[in-house]
């Protein structure tokens, strides 16, 4: 059987299995417009890739996928470059903090538990919210319930924040602190979970920043490129946790999967897709939750140091 040796992870893997993971993630991104990093990292755990390398390498794969994704949005002018730049600045700060936290967690020997806790927490919340929202949208479509009255909530404290600047593409005039702190938070998630953070970023852009839906995905992808680039570099530099061979395999699979996903996605309704996505997100959260609470098969784990 063909095996490929990963120089940084120092183990061999079946390359077709890893390409297969890439395909699955590619399908997810083609289908749902999310990076799929939240699924990739746990899949890599399952085949024995060390947690820190799974997280670091995921960021590298997401970067490539986001570049190929953003080009179409750029061409159609659906990217708010100014907003993207502000989010990126926040993301750089957040990801630097995240990589440092990861380094501390590695030293403490708690990195696997910590990454899993982050997963359960964020995927649990986002999955649940997304599930409720998409079910409601689908119920409206079926005519079971009336559409909720849309009223723009008056976030008093948000409008009171200083340093307001104009974002012409999004048509917003808001405090720069908002996208800065949002970018910072998502940057930490990228470093700690190996996710692009689109699943948090997209809803936050719509509900918190009030951006028009049209520019949300393009702008999110745009800033993810720079934040994942920063995370890739920092993880490689500080934690030696990016395996370039693993990246190559995942990227190859991702290209194939994205094409499949985009075709299947056209045949499905948006709310159906979101119900499906929410169920996948929740399933991952629940699986990892059980890994944290059930008695492990072996109480001991081993790490060999040169």
């Amino acid at each position: 059987m063909l095996e490929l040796y990963l120089p940084v992870a120092q183990m061999s893997v079946n390359p077709f299995l890893i390409i297969g993971f890439g395909v699955v993630i590619g399908i997810m991104s083609g289908l749902f417009g999310v990076g799929g990093g939240f699924l990739l990292t746990p899949l890599l755990f399952m085949v024995g890739i060390p947690p820190s390398i799974a997280v670091g390498t995921s960021a590298n794969q997401i970067m490539a996928a986001s570049i190929s994704g953003v080009l179409a949005h750029l061409k159609e002018g659906n990217v708010d470059l100014r907003m993207g730049a502000v989010l990126t600045v926040g993301g750089f700060v957040g990801s630097a903090v995240g990589v440092t936290v990861l380094k501390v967690l590695i030293a403490l020997g708690q990195v696997d538990v910590a990454i899993k806790l982050f997963y359960v927490f964020f995927l649990g919340i986002v999955g649940l919210l997304m599930f409720i929202e998409s079910l409601r949208a689908y119920a409206v479509f079926l005519g079971w319930v009336k559409p909720p009255k849309r009223e723009r909530k008056n976030h008093g404290w948000i409008h009171g924040l200083p340093f307001r600047i104009r974002f012409p593409v999004s048509g917003r005039y808001i405090s720069v602190l908002l996208p800065l702190s949002l970018g910072c938070g998502i940057g930490m998630l990228t470093a700690l979970m190996g996710v692009g953070g689109g699943f948090v970023m997209v809803p936050a852009m719509i509900y918190l920043l009030g951006m028009p839906t049209l520019v949300v995905v393009g702008t999110s992808l745009f800033q993810i490129i720079f934040v994942t680039a920063n995370v890739t570099f920092l993880q490689a530099y500080a934690n030696q946790s990016v395996d370039v061979m693993l990246s190559v395999l995942l990227i190859i699979g991702g290209v194939v999967g994205a094409q499949v996903g985009a075709r299947v996605g056209k045949a499905m309704r948006g709310d159906q897709l979101r119900i499906l996505l929410a169920m996948i997100v929740l399933a991952v959260a629940i699986k990892i939750f059980f890994e944290l609470v059930l008695t492990p098969g072996s109480l001991y784990s081993l790490e060999l140091k040169g």
């Binding site: 970067m63 890739t232 030696q240």
Partner: peptide
């Protein structure tokens, strides 16, 4: 990766850029 992590990190970033454009 071990001796010149900065170069290696840049290599990974460049690789993602090239393959991202290639994939597009």
């Amino acid at each position: 990766a071990v001796d010149q992590p900065a170069t290696y990190g840049l290599l990974c970033v460049v690789l993602a850029v090239i393959s991202g454009f290639g994939a597009a």
